[in-house]
Design a protein around this nucleic acid. Structure first.
Lengths: 245, 245
DNA sequence: CGGTAGCTTGACAACTGTCAATCTTGGTGG
DNA sequence: CCACCAAGATTGACAGTTGTCAAGCTACCG
């Protein structure tokens, strides 16, 4: 499981090209790094891992040994409330990292589960620390990504604190589309692996309320939606909905 | 404003003892660092800064050059919504850091304002990066603190997504007390500089609703509260309120 | 000591939650 | 390959918590 470990020196041979050749390298951990740094990363991003629907990347209480980058598919991160209910606190799409909380404590605080057949890169935290000592840019990039997480948690706070059900759903769809655009995925018509139930949970609403919001958006000819298919009919109207708030 | 800058080597002389002598050193950035590392930190934590009520540590759009540690007082961080309304996204107490989002982008995304007469340490980000290159433990500690922020943002998500008004207020008070306990402050009776209006905003409620929640807690003999004075009469009952939820 | 900002209280409205029933759709097995 | 089943999604009716509006109260600042 652990690599041969020549503690401090990283040999820059034997390219595995995992990051170098990845279409997400401009957005993922390697973003902004020079080719030498990326080559160093390649050494450590060894584990590509497939996960099937509902498979857990990790569960609360696990020793936090890796951080993950989504290559394909999507994930939900959730906590268990006192009463045992699930509270979804994050959705992860291709090109995004999850499991960053690993850097706080030995034990994971949350569960992260695949919403569909997915594929991730796993980066051992220990290697990452060693690596960022050797190549400061990687440490800086980690910080930047965590800080970005923090900023988006502020946006979530805003959404949960003040927005109506319709606005929450509209914002979610809008941001979802923006995130897809980031990584060059279709933005007009696509699948969302997130169930209405999960979406409701994430947005702090009931399923029925989410369903009604979807109906409203359908009635207004902003989207069409069936189960997991989603089509944006009117990007402008969607954006207007959000801005008007 | 900027120090003399001998780029890579930090001289460990001329102790300023800012961190070494600080009562918060076990909880703040120096937590877990050895005395040598703390001495190095001392070199850079040069600016202690007083802020009066309503004074801004920084505003959105500013170049993010420092991170801050609260020594005394308290702060609120907020965003401006599309419509110009304030959305408070964080409250900062003694021993806590704020402005960590600085590590994501050049420009600040949020405003942070003193809720009362306060005092902070300011750490130049540039120095911090140089320092963590020299002393890896400091970089690691930064990561740990950011990851802790992330975890507490999950708790906030949970609160905003599902809790009733009463539970939100109870949880806020409970966590507020726990945070005070951390740094050895009074937990039975104390001042909260946060107005009902700000508290409501932060918790995603209306002032009237918060006021009613306080009344409920008063009626149940859990607390006494007037303006900014707060007394916890029944810690157990408060905790029970949260767990039952 | 007075004014004013902040807090509290009450009455009512509205949005969202709850409960119950029906409809769709995707997956399974004959 | 088709039909059926079950889980998920939608819809409707109603209830409840919180928001809104309006008034009055308090306490702090000058």
């Amino acid at each position: 499981m652990s690599t041969a470990t020549s503690p401090q020196i990283i040999e820059l041979g034997a390219m595995r090209r995992i990051c170098s050749g990845c279409s997400l390298r401009e957005l993922c951990l390697p973003a902004g790094l020079d080719s030498e740094a990326i080559s160093a990363l390649d050494e450590f991003v060894q584990k590509k891992q497939d996960l099937h629907v509902q498979e857990l990347a990790y569960r609360a209480g696990d020793i936090a040994s890796n951080i993950y980058a989504v290559r394909l598919g999507s994930f939900k991160s959730y906590r268990l409330r006192e009463n045992g209910d699930v509270q979804i606190v994050g959705i992860h799409l291709p090109g995004e990292l999850f499991g960053l909380d690993a850097l706080a404590s030995e034990q994971r605080q949350i569960y992260t589960e695949a919403l569909e057949k997915s594929n991730v890169c796993a980066l051992p935290v220990a290697d990452l620390e060693r690596l960022s000592r050797q190549i400061p840019a990687i440490g800086r990039q980690m910080m930047r990504l965590m800080a970005r997480e923090l900023n988006s948690s502020y946006e979530e706070h805003e959404l949960l604190a003040n927005d109506t059900a319709l606005t929450r759903v509209a914002k979610f769809i809008w941001r979802y589309v923006q995130r897809r655009k980031q990584v060059g995925l279709q933005t007009r018509q696509f699948d969302i692996a997130i169930s209405r139930q999960d979406l409701a949970n994430y947005l702090g609403l009931q399923v029925e309320t989410v369903s009604r919001a979807f109906r409203e958006l359908r009635d207004r000819k902003v989207i069409t939606a069936s189960r997991s298919k989603l089509e944006i009919l009117d990007h402008a109207a969607l954006q207007a909905l959000i801005r008007s708030e």
